[in-house]
């Protein structure tokens, strides 16, 4: 008898959890940018966002540019575009895991743009997850003997008039590669 009561109580909790999640999804998907974080009401359970490409679709290509310095170099290297290349074709219509790379870069760029729009301090930006993510992606493209690197996130709007086509989002500080890795290890 007690076990059936426990099972009944667990069942009621499950119904309550699903209902709470659904109500939270409705409330969090209002068609504007006033994003509330209702996860506090779902115990951290993520709430889906269903505004695909709306209200303002991303109509830009996000480019990641990197330059680095080596010991003895008077000048840093020229900027290099290290944006992940994504194959296109009929295969990608059926199977396209490579599309996650540009999407991740886009997500990081979007978060950094929001921080910038909110006039976040640069120190806060450099300690943020998207900044670290872009740094990690940049680091893989730095020369093996580079001592420091700098990255630049650039939005390119192909459908905009030529004078408004390029918009830099963030230029990082010069990041010493050795100390950065030490920092990363201790932080991890």
């Amino acid at each position: 008898m007690p076990s059936s009561r426990i099972r009944g109580a667990v069942g009621v909790l499950a119904v309550g959890a699903v209902a709470t999640h659904l109500v939270s999804t409705v409330l969090q998907n209002t068609p504007d940018s006033y994003n509330q974080d209702l996860r506090q009401f779902t115990g951290g359970w993520p709430i889906p966002g269903w505004r695909f490409f709306a209200p303002n679709p991303g109509v830009q290509n996000v480019h990641l540019l990197v330059r680095d310095t080596k010991a003895g170099d008077a000048q840093p290297s020229p900027w290099r575009d290290v944006t992940p290349e994504v194959p296109h074709g009929w295969t990608q219509v059926i199977w396209n895991p490579a599309s996650r790379g540009p999407k991740a870069l886009f997500d990081a760029m979007q978060q950094l743009s929001v921080m910038s729009a909110n006039q976040a301090g640069f120190t806060w930006v450099t300690q943020s997850v998207p900044y670290q993510l872009v740094f990690s992606a940049s680091r893989a493209s730095a020369a093996a003997d580079a001592q420091a690197l700098q990255f630049l996130l650039m939005n390119v709007f192909p459908s905009a008039p030529p004078e408004r086509r390029m918009k830099p989002i963030l230029t990082s500080e010069w990041i010493p590669l050795d100390s950065a890795s030490e920092h990363k290890e201790t932080a991890g």
Binding site: P48, W50, R51
Partner: peptide
């Protein structure tokens, strides 16, 4: 909800 929200949100988007 996913379809309806997506459509309504687009109706709030000028470029849509």
């Amino acid at each position: 909800l996913s379809y309806a929200v997506s459509g309504i949100s687009k109706a709030f988007g000028s470029s849509w």
